[in-house]
């Protein structure tokens, strides 16, 4: 016998956005259900007690994956994270996304976790967010008031808050196309080596235009109340960064982060860890891009 440990709610699988909108407009406590990896835990712990769960995984277009070399990548909100590991278009054109997803949680979790649910989760240690931030992802949403586009860089408001309205649904995410000579790296330090208990995480990306390394992206995890990029540090690296630029970029990062003490790692230690990871990632990106034959 298994003990039933979820408090009662109504599970509803809407057929269309309009139908979902009607529920969202009602008086009841409605939560959208993606893969449930976060939501079911919140319900079990009493943090959430919804009356209605709207399963958005079957809405039209939510499972779509489309890539076009001029238009970039469109990922439906219900696409699961395992697709980022196995999808050929992802491996080929967005390798940082592939690399990050491969490290994220377990096959069991990735097979269920959705793009929409994971982005909406808004945790400061969301690894998907780090990669998506590097690729300039834009969230496309729908609410009874219409469609919206929210760049991911503006999506996270901190403390698990997002720019989503109460009745707003992520429909898909869009990533612009990236030139071939783009390279990205994600490094993390966690207490357990499968990723549990994050001390620090850093994703770095850039591409090479002739001899210059440009379009630098630095996203850090666990360093603030949200996943975030550090544009000031990115700017320092434009061109042909040497030791001094790297040192300066690292310095700026340290100035602009505010890690918290957690029970398994102090803030000063998390800073040091991030610094080491970031230095390594930047160096590797430079090394890799410079080694490509022109």
């Amino acid at each position: 016998m298994e003990t039933r440990d979820l408090k009662p709610f109504h599970y509803i699988r809407p057929e269309s956005l309009q139908e979902a909108g009607r529920y969202l407009a009602s008086e009841e406590a409605v939560k959208l259900l993606g893969g449930g990896n976060t939501l079911l835990l919140q319900i079990r712990s009493g943090q959430e007690s919804p009356d209605i769960l709207l399963d958005v995984k079957h809405l039209p277009g939510f499972g779509d994956v489309r890539y076009h070399h001029n238009q970039g990548l469109k990922l439906g909100a219900a696409v699961n994270l395992q697709h980022l590991v196995v999808g050929l278009e992802i491996r080929r054109h967005y390798p940082l996304l592939h690399q990050t997803a491969q490290k994220l949680a377990s096959p069991q979790v990735r097979n269920r976790a959705t793009i929409g649910g994971t982005l909406a989760w808004a945790s400061p240690i969301s690894e998907l967010a780090a990669a998506m931030l590097c690729y300039d992802a834009v969230c496309h949403t729908w609410s009874p008031r219409g469609h919206r586009e929210i760049p991911l860089a503006e999506f996270y408001l901190g403390d698990y808050q997002t720019a989503l309205a109460r009745d707003e649904i992520i429909t898909h995410v869009h990533l612009p196309p990236f030139p071939n000579r783009t390279y990205g790296i994600y490094h993390r330090q966690t207490v357990r080596h499968d990723g549990r208990r994050m001390i620090a995480g850093a994703a770095v990306l850039a591409y090479r235009k002739q001899q210059a390394l440009t379009h630098w992206r630095i996203a850090v995890l666990g360093m603030d109340n949200r996943p975030k990029r550090i544009p000031d540090a990115e700017a320092v690296l434009e061109g042909t960064p040497g030791e001094a630029e790297i040192a300066r970029a690292l310095e700026i990062v340290q100035e602009q982060i505010h890690p918290a003490d957690v029970d398994y790692a102090r803030a000063d230690y998390r800073r040091a860890s991030l610094n080491a990871l970031l230095k390594q990632a930047i160096t590797e990106v430079i090394h890799h891009l410079q080694s490509i034959r022109s």
């Binding site: 357990r192 080596h193 499968d194 549990r196 029970d263």
Partner: peptide, 23 residues
């Protein structure tokens, strides 16, 4: 196993991690 004022705060496999194949 960690406690706060004598109350265990490591109450799941997240806060009390045990080795996986990665460790």
């Amino acid at each position: 196993l960690r406690f706060k004022d004598g109350v265990p705060v490591t109450l799941d496999f997240m806060t009390y991690p045990i080795a996986t194949t990665a460790d």
